[in-house]
Design a protein around this nucleic acid. Sequence first.
DNA 1: TATACTTGTAATCAAATCAATTACACGTTA
DNA 2: TAACGTGTAATTGATTTGATTACAAGTATA
Lengths: 145, 145
Amino acid sequence: MSISSRFAVGIHILTLIDFNREGTSSSEFIASSVNTNPAVIRKLMGMLKKAGLIEVHPGIAGAKLAKDLSEITLFDVYKAVNVVQEKELFSVHNNPNPQCPVGRNIQNTIEPLFEAAQLAMEKVLGSVTLEDVVTDIDKKEKMEC
Amino acid sequence: MSISSRFAVGIHILTLIDFNREGTSSSEFIASSVNTNPAVIRKLMGMLKKAGLIEVHPGIAGAKLAKDLSEITLFDVYKAVNVVQEKELFSVHNNPNPQCPVGRNIQNTIEPLFEAAQLAMEKVLGSVTLEDVVTDIDKKEKMEC
DNA sequence: TATACTTGTAATCAAATCAATTACACGTTA
DNA sequence: TAACGTGTAATTGATTTGATTACAAGTATA
């Protein structure tokens, strides 16, 4: 199973707001680039706003970045859109048999291992900024002759 | 969202088979330790068998490890029980707008980043063996006075 | 051979999550 | 006041999960 595409869409939204920084990034405008429904975008904008990544105001069209691109990592977006809870990337079965040596210890043994794996993944996300993403897109655009 | 507990249960199964290596680890025996239905265990045993981690035979009670504990990593189990497909830990939205510079490049830009994060997580899983798990459980058992 | 037990596997079910969609209250601007 | 935007709740179909039931087929033992 996969982590919700809310994460990828969140990155898309922030990147697009930057690309369109001269213009107005309304939920409808963004939705047409993402190719989804404006209400989906508004819901995600609410999460990004709550996390302090963008500024949006009721009734006023358009969202703006609240921070510099270089100050927003993929990990920030990942946390903002709430796709994976802390220590819960991996789920562990409930109620193993406490009368069995394996059953009564397996959870406590496995959890730190799972946590370490999750943290390693999140560390990579934290090492990439949206500036890196924009730079890469710019590069790809220039290569298309 | 979380990765299926099939992974945790797979680890439980293999660990239990080792703990019970003098006895017979039937699907019912394992199910009572995991606290689930024997059919669930049999399905997982089928996956573990297919991956070459255990030996089971139709009609013959009990499963045995096909390799030494120190030769089975958590990554092996993770692959065996098929909880996350290659390059698909993170899902990316489909059909972004090709007429937008962001829409037409976002997928190709994001995918390698997601892949790197997934690989970092999997690398940690590959660095832990079932022997480590058993050792930890043994240690925890001894501490209970 | 007959019986009991086991594995292998398919079908079904309720619950959870996702993403899309519709609808509408409320704020802002012209 | 009319038009347009955000904020947010409710509904829907699709998909996945884990539990359960059922049964065919393999094996061992009396």
